[in-house]
Protein backbone atom coordinates (compact mmCIF):
# COMPACT_ATOMS: atom_id res chain seq x y z
CA UNK A 1 0.00 0.00 0.00
CA UNK A 2 2.79 2.44 0.95
CA UNK A 3 4.65 1.69 -2.26
CA UNK A 4 1.46 2.28 -4.21
CA UNK A 5 0.88 5.60 -2.46
CA UNK A 6 4.43 6.80 -3.09
CA UNK A 7 4.10 5.88 -6.75
CA UNK A 8 0.73 7.60 -7.10
CA UNK A 9 1.83 10.76 -5.30
CA UNK A 10 4.97 11.13 -7.40
CA UNK A 11 2.89 10.67 -10.53
CA UNK A 12 0.58 13.39 -9.24
CA UNK A 13 3.51 15.78 -8.78
CA UNK A 14 4.72 15.11 -12.31
CA UNK A 15 1.25 15.84 -13.69
CA UNK A 16 1.05 19.13 -11.80
CA UNK A 17 4.49 20.20 -13.02
CA UNK A 18 3.52 19.45 -16.61
CA UNK A 19 0.29 21.40 -16.24
CA UNK A 20 2.01 24.49 -14.87
CA UNK A 21 4.58 24.34 -17.68
CA UNK A 22 1.86 24.09 -20.31
CA UNK A 23 0.01 27.08 -18.94
CA UNK A 24 3.21 29.13 -19.05
CA UNK A 25 3.96 27.99 -22.58
CA UNK A 26 0.47 28.74 -23.87
CA UNK A 27 0.66 32.16 -22.37
CA UNK A 28 4.02 32.74 -24.01
CA UNK A 29 2.92 31.89 -27.54
CA UNK A 30 -0.29 33.93 -27.43
CA UNK A 31 -0.09 37.21 -29.40
CA UNK A 32 -1.37 39.46 -26.60
CA UNK A 33 1.13 41.63 -24.74
CA UNK A 34 0.30 42.13 -21.06
CA UNK A 35 2.91 44.87 -20.75
CA UNK A 36 1.10 46.87 -23.42
CA UNK A 37 -2.24 46.22 -21.73
CA UNK A 38 -1.14 47.52 -18.34
CA UNK A 39 -0.58 51.08 -19.54
CA UNK A 40 -3.14 53.40 -20.97
CA UNK A 41 -3.82 54.69 -24.48
CA UNK A 42 -0.92 57.04 -25.03
CA UNK A 43 1.92 54.83 -24.04
CA UNK A 44 5.52 55.30 -25.05
CA UNK A 45 7.64 52.27 -25.89
CA UNK A 46 9.86 53.10 -22.92
CA UNK A 47 6.95 52.79 -20.50
CA UNK A 48 5.90 49.50 -22.07
CA UNK A 49 9.42 48.18 -21.62
CA UNK A 50 9.48 49.35 -18.01
CA UNK A 51 6.17 47.65 -17.39
CA UNK A 52 7.45 44.53 -19.04
CA UNK A 53 10.38 44.51 -16.65
CA UNK A 54 8.07 45.15 -13.71
CA UNK A 55 5.83 42.23 -14.73
CA UNK A 56 8.88 40.03 -15.04
CA UNK A 57 8.11 39.33 -18.69
CA UNK A 58 11.41 40.62 -20.05
CA UNK A 59 13.20 37.34 -19.39
CA UNK A 60 12.86 34.05 -21.33
CA UNK A 61 9.86 31.90 -20.47
CA UNK A 62 11.92 29.23 -18.70
CA UNK A 63 13.36 31.86 -16.37
CA UNK A 64 9.84 33.15 -15.67
CA UNK A 65 8.81 29.62 -14.84
CA UNK A 66 11.81 29.13 -12.57
CA UNK A 67 11.00 32.32 -10.67
CA UNK A 68 7.40 31.22 -10.31
CA UNK A 69 8.36 27.82 -8.88
CA UNK A 70 10.84 29.43 -6.52
CA UNK A 71 8.16 31.86 -5.34
CA UNK A 72 5.93 28.93 -4.42
CA UNK A 73 8.48 27.78 -1.88
CA UNK A 74 10.22 30.91 -0.60
CA UNK A 75 7.91 33.78 -1.49
CA UNK A 76 8.62 36.49 -4.00
CA UNK A 77 9.76 40.10 -3.92
CA UNK A 78 8.61 42.70 -6.44
CA UNK A 79 9.64 46.25 -7.28
CA UNK A 80 12.75 48.14 -6.30
CA UNK A 81 13.75 50.53 -3.54
CA UNK A 82 10.85 52.30 -1.81
CA UNK A 83 8.21 50.45 -3.82
CA UNK A 84 9.59 47.05 -2.90
CA UNK A 85 7.17 44.55 -1.39
CA UNK A 86 6.97 40.81 -0.82
CA UNK A 87 4.35 38.15 -1.39
CA UNK A 88 5.08 35.48 1.22
CA UNK A 89 5.32 31.77 0.35
CA UNK A 90 3.46 30.07 -1.16
CA UNK A 91 3.47 32.96 -3.66
CA UNK A 92 1.53 32.33 -6.86
CA UNK A 93 2.65 35.71 -8.14
CA UNK A 94 1.32 39.26 -8.03
CA UNK A 95 -1.58 40.65 -9.96
CA UNK A 96 -0.71 44.09 -11.30
CA UNK A 97 -4.29 44.61 -12.36
CA UNK A 98 -5.75 43.88 -8.96
CA UNK A 99 -2.69 45.11 -7.05
CA UNK A 100 -2.74 42.11 -4.78
CA UNK A 101 -0.73 38.99 -4.16
CA UNK A 102 -2.47 36.16 -6.03
CA UNK A 103 -2.33 33.96 -2.95
CA UNK A 104 -4.45 36.50 -1.08
CA UNK A 105 -6.93 36.63 -3.94
CA UNK A 106 -7.19 32.83 -3.83
CA UNK A 107 -7.56 32.87 -0.08
CA UNK A 108 -10.58 35.12 -0.25
CA UNK A 109 -12.17 33.40 -3.26
CA UNK A 110 -11.69 29.80 -2.20
CA UNK A 111 -14.10 29.73 0.80
CA UNK A 112 -16.85 31.00 -1.50
CA UNK A 113 -16.27 28.27 -4.05
CA UNK A 114 -15.83 25.65 -1.34
CA UNK A 115 -19.15 26.65 0.27
CA UNK A 116 -20.87 26.52 -3.08
CA UNK A 117 -19.37 23.15 -3.99
CA UNK A 118 -19.98 21.39 -0.68
CA UNK A 119 -23.61 22.44 -0.35
CA UNK A 120 -24.47 21.68 -3.96
CA UNK A 121 -22.60 18.38 -3.78
CA UNK A 122 -24.46 17.15 -0.68
CA UNK A 123 -27.77 18.31 -2.09
CA UNK A 124 -27.41 16.62 -5.47
CA UNK A 125 -25.93 13.48 -4.01
CA UNK A 126 -28.84 13.09 -1.62
CA UNK A 127 -31.56 13.99 -4.11
CA UNK A 128 -30.01 12.15 -7.06
CA UNK A 129 -29.18 8.91 -5.31
CA UNK A 130 -32.41 8.60 -3.33
CA UNK A 131 -34.53 9.48 -6.35
CA UNK A 132 -32.58 6.95 -8.40
CA UNK A 133 -33.18 4.21 -5.84
CA UNK A 134 -36.89 4.99 -5.65
CA UNK A 135 -37.14 5.02 -9.45
CA UNK A 136 -35.39 1.65 -9.67
CA UNK A 137 -37.59 0.06 -7.01
CA UNK A 138 -40.73 1.32 -8.71
CA UNK A 139 -39.51 0.71 -12.23
CA UNK A 140 -42.09 1.71 -14.86
CA UNK A 141 -44.57 2.81 -12.20
CA UNK A 142 -45.49 6.40 -11.38
CA UNK A 143 -42.52 7.25 -9.09
CA UNK A 144 -40.19 6.17 -11.88
CA UNK A 145 -42.05 8.27 -14.44
CA UNK A 146 -42.08 11.27 -12.12
CA UNK A 147 -38.35 11.00 -11.59
CA UNK A 148 -37.98 10.77 -15.34
CA UNK A 149 -39.64 14.17 -15.70
CA UNK A 150 -37.22 15.57 -13.15
CA UNK A 151 -34.29 14.07 -15.03
CA UNK A 152 -35.50 15.54 -18.31
CA UNK A 153 -35.88 19.01 -16.84
CA UNK A 154 -32.56 18.81 -15.03
CA UNK A 155 -30.54 17.67 -17.99
CA UNK A 156 -32.14 19.92 -20.59
CA UNK A 157 -32.02 23.16 -18.62
CA UNK A 158 -28.52 24.64 -18.74
CA UNK A 159 -27.43 26.34 -15.52
CA UNK A 160 -27.39 29.77 -17.15
CA UNK A 161 -31.13 29.39 -17.79
CA UNK A 162 -32.15 27.61 -14.60
CA UNK A 163 -29.95 29.92 -12.52
CA UNK A 164 -31.51 33.06 -13.94
CA UNK A 165 -35.02 31.61 -13.59
CA UNK A 166 -34.40 30.69 -9.97
CA UNK A 167 -32.83 34.06 -9.22
CA UNK A 168 -35.57 36.12 -10.85
CA UNK A 169 -38.70 34.15 -10.16
CA UNK A 170 -37.90 32.68 -6.77
CA UNK A 171 -35.07 34.40 -4.94
CA UNK A 172 -35.81 38.01 -5.87
CA UNK A 173 -39.53 37.80 -6.56
CA UNK A 174 -40.39 36.48 -3.13
CA UNK A 175 -37.81 38.63 -1.41
CA UNK A 176 -35.63 35.78 -0.15
CA UNK A 177 -32.58 37.72 -1.24
CA UNK A 178 -31.94 41.45 -1.10
CA UNK A 179 -30.50 42.41 -4.51
CA UNK A 180 -27.90 44.61 -2.84
CA UNK A 181 -26.60 41.74 -0.74
CA UNK A 182 -26.60 39.32 -3.66
CA UNK A 183 -23.47 37.21 -3.51
CA UNK A 184 -22.10 38.92 -0.42
CA UNK A 185 -19.70 36.54 1.28
CA UNK A 186 -20.68 35.65 4.84
CA UNK A 187 -18.68 33.23 6.90
CA UNK A 188 -20.76 30.23 8.02
CA UNK A 189 -19.01 30.40 11.39
CA UNK A 190 -20.06 33.97 12.08
CA UNK A 191 -23.47 34.08 10.45
CA UNK A 192 -24.79 30.63 9.49
CA UNK A 193 -28.22 31.94 8.48
CA UNK A 194 -26.73 34.61 6.25
CA UNK A 195 -24.43 32.02 4.75
CA UNK A 196 -27.36 29.71 3.99
CA UNK A 197 -29.25 32.64 2.52
CA UNK A 198 -26.38 33.48 0.21
CA UNK A 199 -25.85 29.96 -1.01
CA UNK A 200 -29.18 28.16 -0.99
CA UNK A 201 -30.23 29.29 -4.48
CA UNK A 202 -26.84 28.69 -6.11
CA UNK A 203 -26.87 25.25 -4.52
CA UNK A 204 -30.27 24.46 -5.97
CA UNK A 205 -29.17 25.69 -9.39
CA UNK A 206 -26.06 23.54 -9.47
CA UNK A 207 -27.67 20.54 -7.80
CA UNK A 208 -30.54 20.50 -10.29
CA UNK A 209 -28.15 19.89 -13.16
CA UNK A 210 -26.05 17.27 -11.40
CA UNK A 211 -28.86 15.47 -9.54
CA UNK A 212 -30.54 14.59 -12.82
CA UNK A 213 -27.47 12.71 -14.02
CA UNK A 214 -27.09 10.98 -10.68
CA UNK A 215 -30.72 9.91 -10.62
CA UNK A 216 -30.33 8.27 -14.00
CA UNK A 217 -27.03 6.68 -13.11
CA UNK A 218 -28.25 5.34 -9.77
CA UNK A 219 -31.45 4.02 -11.29
CA UNK A 220 -29.73 2.04 -14.02
CA UNK A 221 -27.05 0.74 -11.65
CA UNK A 222 -29.59 -0.46 -9.10
CA UNK A 223 -31.71 -2.14 -11.79
CA UNK A 224 -28.68 -3.78 -13.32
CA UNK A 225 -27.33 -5.01 -9.99
CA UNK A 226 -30.75 -6.36 -8.98
CA UNK A 227 -30.55 -8.95 -11.73
CA UNK A 228 -27.08 -10.15 -10.72
CA UNK A 229 -26.72 -13.78 -9.70
CA UNK A 230 -25.45 -12.84 -6.25
CA UNK A 231 -28.67 -10.97 -5.51
CA UNK A 232 -30.57 -14.17 -6.30
CA UNK A 233 -28.19 -15.94 -3.92
CA UNK A 234 -29.01 -13.40 -1.22
CA UNK A 235 -32.70 -14.05 -1.79
CA UNK A 236 -32.15 -17.83 -1.68
CA UNK A 237 -30.45 -17.36 1.69
CA UNK A 238 -33.72 -16.07 3.07
CA UNK A 239 -32.76 -12.42 3.51
CA UNK A 240 -35.58 -9.90 3.48
CA UNK A 241 -35.94 -7.53 0.54
CA UNK A 242 -34.95 -4.61 2.74
CA UNK A 243 -31.65 -6.20 3.76
CA UNK A 244 -30.97 -7.32 0.19
CA UNK A 245 -31.40 -3.77 -1.07
CA UNK A 246 -29.39 -2.16 1.70
CA UNK A 247 -26.55 -4.60 2.09
CA UNK A 248 -26.25 -6.32 -1.25
CA UNK A 249 -27.71 -4.26 -4.07
CA UNK A 250 -26.73 -0.77 -2.98
CA UNK A 251 -23.21 -1.75 -1.98
CA UNK A 252 -22.49 -2.87 -5.51
CA UNK A 253 -24.68 -0.34 -7.31
CA UNK A 254 -23.33 2.75 -5.56
CA UNK A 255 -19.63 1.92 -5.80
CA UNK A 256 -19.18 3.47 -9.26
CA UNK A 257 -20.93 6.61 -8.01
CA UNK A 258 -17.98 7.23 -5.69
CA UNK A 259 -15.75 7.78 -8.70
CA UNK A 260 -18.25 9.99 -10.46
CA UNK A 261 -18.99 12.05 -7.34
CA UNK A 262 -15.35 12.53 -6.45
CA UNK A 263 -14.44 13.88 -9.86
CA UNK A 264 -17.54 16.07 -10.15
CA UNK A 265 -16.86 17.56 -6.74
CA UNK A 266 -13.21 18.21 -7.60
CA UNK A 267 -14.29 19.85 -10.85
CA UNK A 268 -16.56 22.21 -8.95
CA UNK A 269 -13.82 23.15 -6.50
CA UNK A 270 -11.99 24.73 -9.42
CA UNK A 271 -14.85 27.21 -9.64
CA UNK A 272 -18.37 27.19 -11.05
CA UNK A 273 -18.04 29.98 -13.60
CA UNK A 274 -21.66 30.31 -14.67
CA UNK A 275 -23.35 29.87 -11.32
CA UNK A 276 -20.91 32.18 -9.59
CA UNK A 277 -21.52 34.72 -12.34
CA UNK A 278 -25.31 34.63 -12.07
CA UNK A 279 -25.38 34.88 -8.29
CA UNK A 280 -22.53 37.37 -8.13
CA UNK A 281 -20.47 35.06 -5.94
CA UNK A 282 -16.83 36.17 -5.60
CA UNK A 283 -15.41 32.67 -6.00
CA UNK A 284 -12.62 31.09 -7.99
CA UNK A 285 -14.73 30.79 -11.13
CA UNK A 286 -15.32 34.51 -11.30
CA UNK A 287 -11.70 35.23 -10.41
CA UNK A 288 -10.46 33.18 -13.35
CA UNK A 289 -12.99 34.32 -15.91
CA UNK A 290 -12.18 37.95 -15.14
CA UNK A 291 -8.48 37.25 -15.37
CA UNK A 292 -8.93 35.57 -18.73
CA UNK A 293 -11.50 37.79 -20.40
CA UNK A 294 -10.87 41.27 -19.00
CA UNK A 295 -7.39 41.55 -17.62
CA UNK A 296 -5.26 38.94 -19.29
CA UNK A 297 -3.74 38.43 -15.88
CA UNK A 298 -1.21 35.59 -16.13
CA UNK A 299 -0.46 35.05 -12.43
CA UNK A 300 -4.13 34.59 -11.65
CA UNK A 301 -4.76 32.31 -14.62
CA UNK A 302 -1.80 30.09 -13.75
CA UNK A 303 -2.84 29.94 -10.11
CA UNK A 304 -6.50 29.07 -10.69
CA UNK A 305 -5.61 26.54 -13.38
CA UNK A 306 -3.09 24.93 -11.05
CA UNK A 307 -5.58 24.90 -8.22
CA UNK A 308 -8.30 23.28 -10.35
CA UNK A 309 -5.82 20.72 -11.65
CA UNK A 310 -4.58 19.95 -8.16
CA UNK A 311 -8.11 19.33 -6.91
CA UNK A 312 -8.74 16.94 -9.78
CA UNK A 313 -5.58 14.87 -9.46
CA UNK A 314 -5.72 14.77 -5.66
CA UNK A 315 -9.39 13.77 -5.72
CA UNK A 316 -8.59 11.15 -8.32
CA UNK A 317 -6.04 9.70 -5.94
CA UNK A 318 -8.50 9.78 -3.03
CA UNK A 319 -11.21 8.13 -5.11
CA UNK A 320 -8.84 5.35 -6.15
CA UNK A 321 -7.86 4.69 -2.54
CA UNK A 322 -11.48 4.78 -1.43
CA UNK A 323 -12.48 2.48 -4.26
CA UNK A 324 -9.90 -0.07 -3.25
CA UNK A 325 -11.47 0.03 0.18
CA UNK A 326 -14.95 -0.55 -1.25
CA UNK A 327 -14.11 -3.14 -3.92
CA UNK A 328 -11.72 -5.85 -2.71
CA UNK A 329 -10.99 -6.88 -6.30
CA UNK A 330 -9.01 -3.73 -7.02
CA UNK A 331 -7.04 -3.86 -3.79
CA UNK A 332 -3.31 -3.87 -4.44
CA UNK A 333 -1.25 -6.60 -2.92
Amino acid sequence: MLKYLVRRISATLVVLTLISMSVFLIFDVLPMDPARLTCGKACSPAVVEANRHRLGLDVPVQVQYGRWVKGLFVGRTYGEGQAQFTCPAPAFGYSFNRHECVTDLLKSAFPVTLSLAIGAFLLWLFVGVSLGIVAARFKNRWPDRASNVFVLVGTSLPTFISGILILLFVALKFGFVNPIDLGKWVSPFENPIGWLNTFIFPWITLALAYAATYTRFTRSNVIETSSEDYIRTARAKGLSEKVILRKHTLRAALAPIVTLAGLDFAGLLGGAIITEGIFNLPGLGRLSIRAVVNDYDLPIIVATTMLAATFLVVMNLLVDILYAYIDPRVRVA
Binding site: E228, D229, Y230, R232, T233, A234, R251, A252, I326, D327
Partner: peptide, 9 residues
Protein backbone atom coordinates in the same frame (compact mmCIF):
# COMPACT_ATOMS: atom_id res chain seq x y z
CA UNK B 1 -18.34 -17.32 -10.53
CA UNK B 2 -21.17 -14.82 -10.27
CA UNK B 3 -23.28 -16.25 -7.45
CA UNK B 4 -21.16 -14.79 -4.64
CA UNK B 5 -21.16 -11.10 -3.79
CA UNK B 6 -17.83 -9.71 -4.98
CA UNK B 7 -17.54 -7.09 -2.21
CA UNK B 8 -17.97 -9.27 0.86
CA UNK B 9 -15.54 -11.81 2.27
Amino acid sequence: MSALHPYYS
